[in-house]
Amino acid sequence: MITFDDVVKVYPGGSTAVDHLSLELPTGKTTVFVGPSGCGKTTSLRMINRMINPTSGRILIDGQDVAGQDDALLRRKIGYVIQHAGLFPHRTVLDNVATVPMLLGKSRKEARTAALGLLERVGLSAEFASRYPAQLSGGQQQRVGVARALAADPPVMLMDEPFSAVDPVVREGLHREFLRLQKDLGKTIAMVTHDIDEAIKLGDVVVILRQGGKLAQIGTPQELLDHPADEFVAEFVGRDRGLRSLSFDTAAGLPVRPLTADLLLDEAGRPVSWGDGEPTGGTFTVEDSLRLVTDLAITSPVGIAVRVDANGKADGLVPHHDLVDHLAERRAAK
C-alpha cells in the first residue's frame, strides 16, 4: 500500500503543484491519477520514488517513509515507465531490460536470461532481443519499457503516461496486454494519464485531481461515473458517463424471454438470422457488459438482443423495452 499523508509540493517561485493530498493506493491494484494539465498528477507520481521531494507531508510504501531511504536503492525496488519509454538508445533491447537486475548485482548472463523471458511476457519474440530501440516502432518500444520496469520484479510500478505516445489502435492493444499482465502479476501500480477513458478502463481506483493539486474525488471507475462528487468531476468524466457506467455491470442479472420461432437457428442451436432474413447483429453472454447488451438492442433491426451460452447456443432474448425496465430498476437500487 502506498500512502500519501498530507503531502504538499510548492515549487520555487510559489506555484502549488500538490495541495494537502492524503490518499491510499491499495496493494495489488492499479490506481490512476487523472486530471487537467497543471493538476499535479505527474508531480504526485514522481514524489513516490523521490524524483521530486515533497515540501511537507509524508509518502509511505507499506508503512515505510520514502524520505528516509537511499534514492537509488529505493528506485531499484520501484518499476518506472515513462512516456516514449525513454529506452537507452545505445543498448540493445535485451540489455535495456537487463538494466535494473544488473544494478542490483546480478551477473550479465543471469540478467540477460531473465530479460529474454520478460520480452516474451510483454509479447515480443526473441528476435527483438539484439535490436536497438531506434529499430522498433513506438508500441514495441513501450513494451520494452514495461519489460524493463518489470525486470527486477518490483512490487510497485510507476507509469507516467505510458500509452499516450502511440496511435489509438496500438494503444488499444497495449491496454489489453496491460490488463492481462496486471491480472497475472498483481503489482501495486500508480499510473498517470490525462485521458479519463484510459483511467476508467485501466484503473481499479481512479484519483481525479483539479488544478492546483487538489483532490477532486477518489473512487472506483463506476463510483465516479455513477456518483460524481461535484460539477467538475461530472464534467471531467464526460457527458455519456451513464452509458459508460454500464460497462461495469454484467448481463448476469438481466431477465431474458424464451426463444421464439422468429429466430432461425442452425442444427447446433446457434442463431443464424431473424425469420425475415434480418441479421441478428451479434450476441452476448451473461459475462458481457450491460453496455454491450444495450448496444445490441439498439442496433438490432428488430430491437431484440440475443443471448447465447458458452457454446454459442441461443438461450434467451432481451427486447429493448425489457432492458429499459432493467436499467430503471438498476437506477432505483443505487
Binding site: 537509488a72 528506485r75 512516456q83 516514449h84 525513454g86 538508445p89 545505445h90 535494473v100 544494478l103
Partner: peptide, 27 residues
Amino acid sequence: LDHRVVDAARGMGMRPWQVLFKVELPM
C-alpha cells in the same frame, strides 16, 4: 541528450556517476 532517457536512468535507480558513464557519455 534526450532528457527523457536521463530521467528514466535516474528513475530506475542509477547513481549520478552511473548516469554519467553508462548513459550520458555513451549517448
